[in-house]
Every structure is written in structure tokens, then in C-alpha cells.
């Protein structure tokens, strides 16, 4: 094999790479915040008495979890304009990521809520907590603390999956790679560098999430998060 690797060429394109990294970070952080918030709300609806709300949440979660993220992006980006709703590639990516992550978070947080024992809620009532206080301190926070490692794994998977958004022309890191490749024809070198950047981003995100876990829930949960590898959600 007479191929010589030339990584030097890629250094010329550092602005493209930095812009790509920044877009990936922005999309990931925004979708994590929005998706997690939506997940908390939907999981709360889901754990209420059986009714129409519960059926709708179940249907939403099942539909999103059983269809590919790429196809969801296509529907948002190419499909919505047909209904008179034109969105930019970045907005479409953010909508797609949020919708996707919300479904997974709902499922994970629901499992956490279900694991809260009824006696805990009764203990809260006995202590004279209001319903809102019980909801916040007895149900939601302990539930999230329990499933925090699984939730973080899902966040990391979402950050990695954001690379797929390049298929709808969102200018994030994978799109930067494709652009540099088309300019320099150094495809293998470009993708090695970008892959290493994704690896670093994944490790960094995991570290940041462990810090947030430490701040929110204390040492035990944070340690589990740092060690745990991404769990695979069915």
C-alpha cells in the first residue's frame, strides 16, 4: 500500500471544524434541556390515572422509539413544509432531536417514578407536605436520581446521533467533515480526526453530566454515572 497520510492539510480547515463542534454542542445542549424537561412532564402525565393522556403519551413514546431518528428528521425537514410549516435545517434538527430525546427520557423517567414506593408518598403526606412538595421532593427528584445514569447514557447517544443531522444539511461536525473532504480529498484523515473529536466530546459530556449529578444528587449517583457505559434502551 503506497498511501501516505497527510493530516497537515486538515489544520487549514480548523475554522470549519470549530464551527461544526460549536453547532454540535449547541444542538446537543438545547435538545438535552428541552427533551429532558418534556420527558419529566410526559412521564408525570403517564404516571397519573389511566385515561386519554396516558394513551397519548404511550402512543408517542412507542412511535418515536420504534422508528429511526433519520426518518424522523426527514419528516420534520421535508414533510412539514408540505403542511405549510417551513423550518430551517438547524430548527428541524433541534425539533427532531428534542422529539426523539423526549420519548426516551419519558420512558426512562417513568421507570424511575414507578420505582418510588407508595409508602414514601404516604410518609410525605404524614409530614404535612403539600401535593406539590410531595411531587417535587418525594417523587420527581428521587426518581431522576435513580435513573440518572441511564438518562445520561441516552444524552450521550443523542449527541452522537446528532451527526445524522448532516443528512438534512445541518452544518454540524459531521457536515464540516463532509465539506473538508470535498475540498481536500483527504477523506480518511478527515474522518479519523472528526471521529476522535466525537470521542472527546462524548467523554467530556459524560464528565459534565457526572459533575451535574454530583451537584444535584450527591456523590453516589455521580460515581455511577462516571463509570457506567451507555446502556442500551429497547
Amino acid at each position: 500500500m503506497s498511501y501516505t497520510f497527510q493530516f497537515g492539510v486538515i489544520a487549514q480547515y480548523q475554522n470549519e471544524i470549530l464551527a461544526g463542534i460549536w453547532m454540535t454542542i449547541k444542538l446537543s445542549v438545547a435538545s438535552i434541556i428541552l427533551g429532558c424537561a418534556a420527558g419529566i412532564v410526559l412521564a408525570s402525565v403517564r404516571s397519573m390515572k389511566p385515561g386519554i393522556g396516558r394513551i397519548l403519551v404511550d402512543a408517542y413514546v412507542e412511535i418515536i422509539r420504534n422508528t429511526p431518528f433519520l426518518v424522523q428528521l426527514f419528516i420534520v425537514y421535508f414533510g412539514l413544509p408540505g403542511l405549510g410549516l417551513r423550518v430551517s435545517a438547524v430548527t428541524a434538527a433541534l425539533i427532531g432531536m428534542t422529539i426523539n430525546l423526549a420519548a426516551y427520557s419519558t420512558e426512562i423517567i417513568r421507570a424511575g417514578i414507578e420505582s418510588i414506593h407508595k409508602s414514601q408518598i404516604e410518609a410525605g403526606e404524614a409530614l404535612g407536605f403539600t401535593r406539590l412538595q410531595i411531587y417535587r421532593h418525594v417523587i420527581i427528584m428521587p426518581a431522576i436520581a435513580k435513573v440518572y445514569p441511564a438518562l445520561c447514557s441516552q444524552f450521550v447517544l443523542m449527541m452522537l446521533a446528532s451527526s445524522v443531522c448532516s443528512a438534512i444539511s445541518t452544518k454540524e461536525l459531521a457536515a464540516s467533515a463532509a465539506f473538508i473532504e470535498s475540498q481536500s480529498f483527504r477523506s480518511f484523515e478527515v474522518y479519523i480526526v472528526v471521529t476522535l473529536i466525537y470521542l472527546a466530546l462524548a467523554l467530556a459530556l459524560r464528565g459534565v453530566l457526572a459533575m451535574i449529578g454530583l451537584w444535584l444528587f450527591g456523590r453516589r449517583v455521580a460515581r455511577r454515572t462516571a463509570i457506567a457505559l451507555p446502556e442500551v434502551q429497547a
Partner: peptide, 15 residues
């Protein structure tokens, strides 16, 4: 588990 599927795809494609 720390890199996107898309990158595995490109690397093996060009590799």
C-alpha cells in the same frame, strides 16, 4: 460506544 455510527460507516467505507 463513544463515536457515532455514521463515523464508523465513513471510516470503514474510505478505509
Amino acid at each position: 460506544q463513544g463515536i457515532p455510527v455514521l463515523m464508523i460507516l465513513f471510516l470503514s467505507y474510505y478505509g
